[in-house]
């Protein structure tokens, strides 16, 4: 059995001395410890890391392998403090994600990663932070939110914004309630539509931006959601005074290899898998003006 310690892969990449012959394409089998249903089409699995710790940057992704079906890139939505548990939130929308949705506790998932460039948690230190997620975009952003809240004293004002389709489509409700309860953080949630039972905001996430009391010169915004949502967020963050190089977004394209070789995730001159998935809006602003890129 060939085992790859993903954290070894990561450190090898960082030091740019990855030896030829390293089996970068080999998944490590990991057992499902727990499985939760988040929304009607979205579920979360907690994987048992065989050789902890699993070291990652918030915002990176793994390739998850459903045996015999194939691989799919899924952002990492959490890791336990000791690096022994890996959390992925997955939406059942394709062949591979559907196969993964059928797995239960003790089922096995192949994992290789982590890959890509994550959120700018270092660059944001000492600054105000806006963390804005739309829909399932909360999953890739959650490690960044957790990091900021766990190191709260290292950041200025912290504003968390979350937009979902309906109250029933919101992820991680218990955790969101904890975030909302904090006195050192401003957390606002809005939904596109709701019944009368919902007492929170109804509207779009961009409408929450104006009330963020941040210092625009000293603020980093991290935005994750559908492309159109990120695009509109940039417009509203710009109104607040944030320049594009302080706005970070996470992009998505087809991915087969995650190591810059299969060519599918090209986005202009970048490969989402190795140059992203997180980019400053500055880096890609022009591409938002091109259709079907």
């Amino acid at each position: 059995m060939t085992e790859v310690n993903p954290s070894a892969v990561r450190s090898a990449v960082r030091s740019a001395t990855l030896p030829i012959g390293l089996p970068a394409m080999l998944p490590t089998p990991m057992r499902i410890k727990r499985r939760m249903r988040d929304t009607p089409d979205t579920f979360t699995i907690v994987l048992d890391v065989p050789q902890p710790p699993f070291v990652l940057e918030a915002g990176q992704f793994n390739m998850l392998y459903a045996f015999g079906v194939g691989e799919v890139p899924i952002s990492i939505s959490g890791v336990s403090k000791n690096g022994g548990e890996l959390v992925h939130t997955i939406r059942d929308v394709g062949t591979v994600t559907h196969a993964l949705s059928l797995l239960r506790k003790d089922g096995v998932v192949g994992v290789r990663g982590p890959y890509g460039r994550g959120w700018p948690l270092e660059a944001a230190r000492g600054k105000d932070v806006i963390l804005a997620a739309g829909g399932i975009g909360l999953a890739p952003l959650r490690p960044a939110i957790r990091h900021v809240l766990d190191h709260r004293e290292e950041y200025g004002r912290v504003v968390i914004l979350y937009g979902a389709r309906t109250p029933q489509d919101m992820l991680y409700l218990p955790e969101i309630q904890k975030w909302r309860g904090r006195l050192d953080t401003k957390m606002s949630v809005t939904v596109d539509r709701a019944s009368r039972k919902w007492l929170g905001n109804v509207g779009v996430i961009t409408q929450l931006v104006a009330a963020s009391r941040v210092d625009p010169d000293e603020t980093i915004a991290m935005v994750c959601g559908p492309e159109i949502m990120m695009h509109y967020m940039q417009i509203h963050l710009a109104k607040l005074g944030l320049p594009n190089d302080q706005i970070y977004v996470s992009m998505e394209r087809n991915m087969k290899c995650a190591i810059g070789r299969c060519g599918h995730c090209q986005y202009g001159g970048d490969f989402i898998c190795k140059d992203g998935p997180v980019f400053t809006f500055d880096e890609i602003a022009d591409r938002f003006r091109v259709r079907a890129l």
């Binding site: 059995m1 089996p23 394409m25 080999l26 089998p29 057992r31 015999g68 003790d106 096995v108 192949g110």
Partner: peptide, 14 residues
């Protein structure tokens, strides 16, 4: 890649 599965054990080789 070649992958073999038996009783929850995976063997993956290049």
């Amino acid at each position: 890649l070649e992958a073999e599965r038996s009783g929850g054990q995976w063997k993956i080789t290049e």
